[in-house]
Design a protein around this nucleic acid. Structure first.
Lengths: 150, 150
DNA sequence: CATTCGAATGTATAAATATTCTTTTCCCGC
DNA sequence: GCGGGAAAAGAATATTTATACATTCGAATG
């Protein structure tokens, strides 16, 4: 019984956001498993489900998705703590970071999905951002400067 | 203040398993931020931290990058706790896990970058490992059995 | 300055979750 | 079938987390 119930839990959790065990209890009852919250607490641990992230819902382990808002916030924090300098050359924007931080900041940058960013490249301490043209590069620089000051 | 405190939270959470906000409160107080649990609850949501998984600790969202040594250790621990059975069919190795654990164990397996592993596939409770030939599949089985016993 | 607005945080408490202890269920070997 | 033991689940409760509301603080504005 336990195995089948746990399969059902995975199904439910994957298909819609469940934010409490009581909510899960009702859903799983509808699937024909009438158990208490305590049992679900155990199931959840055994399945390694994870709670929190963007929407505070339970998620299967592995990839935890980050929504736009969180991604942007993460980027902003990364920016504030790691950015050393911003330069622009034509339609290219160059970010200088502390040594070794370019990769992680670049990942956060990609996650934030800022407009006008066509592509990015990260080295050891430098990130290259490609934008469509010089005008939009200037706009991006302004935006990044604002974000890094917060 | 908030930004710096949240950065500090990330640091702490990355370095050791934190299983409650009260525990986190003490740690962060030691870092010079004296705030209440309510504030930490809000910080945790804003950071998109996730709780649960293997050890019930808070974790940063997204893909956690790890070096080779850590990856191997993680894999070994995952193996010890989640592996149910090992089978081999020709050059294929099948790992059976507890329901729902195949994905995460498979991720750890990939991270460990074991020799002779050509590719992997994970279902709900089964992992398929493809090796070049039956001989190396046997070698891999032996290695996995050793690792899981430690 | 005083005022107002909003973000950040604290306080108190409600809500959610984990856990301890007990009961039930389900296999085995006899 | 019948103990004995282990796994599973329930009940009650302790612990942990989220939230409603109040307060403080700082920047912007008149």
């Amino acid at each position: 019984m336990k195995a089948r119930r746990q399969t059902a839990i995975l199904d439910i959790v994957r298909h819609e956001p469940i934010r409490s065990q009581e909510q899960l209890r009702l859903m799983i009852k509808a699937s024909g498993f009438d158990v208490t919250q305590a049992t679900l607490s155990r199931d959840i641990r055994e399945l390694g489900l994870v709670k929190g992230g963007a929407d505070g819902a339970y998620q299967p382990p592995g990839r935890v998705e980050v929504n736009g808002h969180t991604a942007k916030a993460m980027f902003q924090r990364a920016l504030a703590s790691q950015l050393r300098r911003i330069d622009r050359v034509q339609q290219l924007v160059l970010l200088k970071t502390g040594l070794g931080h370019a990769q992680s900041l670049c990942a956060a940058l990609d996650g934030a999905e800022l407009p006008d960013v066509v592509g990015t490249l990260a080295g050891e301490d430098t990130i290259l951002i490609i934008t469509p043209d010089a005008r939009r590069a200037r706009t991006l620089v302004k935006r990044l400067e604002e974000m890094s000051q917060t």
